[in-house]
Design a protein around this nucleic acid. Structure first.
Lengths: 143, 143
DNA sequence: TCATCTTGTTTGCGTTTGCAAATATTTCAT
DNA sequence: ATGAAATATTTGCAAACGCAAACAAGATGA
């Protein structure tokens, strides 16, 4: 079977990723939150304080971009950046109360997206999809 | 089960998509081809001439961005843009011989990526993954 | 302890991006 | 045939991005 670009995993991944991202971005507009901002809020809400580097890896945003993004979010009082005195080269980022409130407010949108995206699949298929995506992610290391 | 952002479909999709894209971009560097350029080349190679609008939908690149990208690719003689006299509002984009040669040269990289990404899955699982991704894509319309 | 190496973050800068407006052409209704 | 609506592409502009260099602090080892 010849290689068909439009059926390749990277193509399907990108296509799905971009279209979901576009729609989600539209939904976030009224809150004046960008998609990368939402991702930061959602990660911090789920797993608590992180350094910039950790956050960068988790949300797949380049560190220099994230540094500026966190700056903007701090200015809007969504997060705090804290340089601990015991290790002054790292920056710990955490949600403010306002940031947490915003994250909470956005959760229904996220769950609606999740529910809708998999609404034609049964629970076993959803687990399969997620498992396969995680496995693809693992394979990336081998490229 | 509570909603876990880092296990949501959009998150997994984005994570995989970004990391594959990053690696692929690195591999394209030596050819001085960007990832969006590669996507255009690959689509045209697979399915022939398309208008700008069709191409935009197929490669998930916003039309204004694509318009400029195609301009750059035309300047580098990878593609031609042609306004047919029978319908002068559309622009037909096609590969030049050089563009086709470049596309051909890049195919081994693409197949290597595809092979590696799914190398831990059996053929049935690969088909399942692709089918599920296509289905997710369909569901996007319902958001 | 003081040079050096490593780790973590920020800044400078040119490029790419997306939105909105402008432009151009075709289609449709009258 | 003519003005209005629809379709397709391009351009202006400001925001976001990624790379590389700069910067800062901690770890290592003579």
């Amino acid at each position: 079977m010849p290689y068909r670009f439009t059926e390749s995993v990277p193509y399907l991944l990108n296509r799905a990723g971009v279209s979901v991202a576009e729609r989600f971005t539209r939904r976030l507009e009224e809150y004046e939150v960008s998609l990368p901002m939402y991702r930061v809020l959602a990660v911090l809400r789920q797993t608590g304080t992180h350094t910039l580097g950790e956050l960068s890896a988790m949300v797949s945003v380049e560190m220099s971009t994230l540094s500026r993004l966190i700056g903007a979010m701090a200015k809007r009082d969504l997060v705090t950046r804290d340089r601990p005195q015991d290790n002054a080269r790292i920056v710990l980022i955490d949600l403010t109360d306002g940031g947490r409130a915003m994250a909470d407010k956005l959760m229904p949108i996220a769950t609606h997206f999740e529910d809708t995206l998999v609404s034609n699949l049964d629970p076993a298929q959803v687990e399969t999809l997620k498992s396969l995506l995680r496995q693809v992610n693992q394979q990336v290391e081998k490229l």
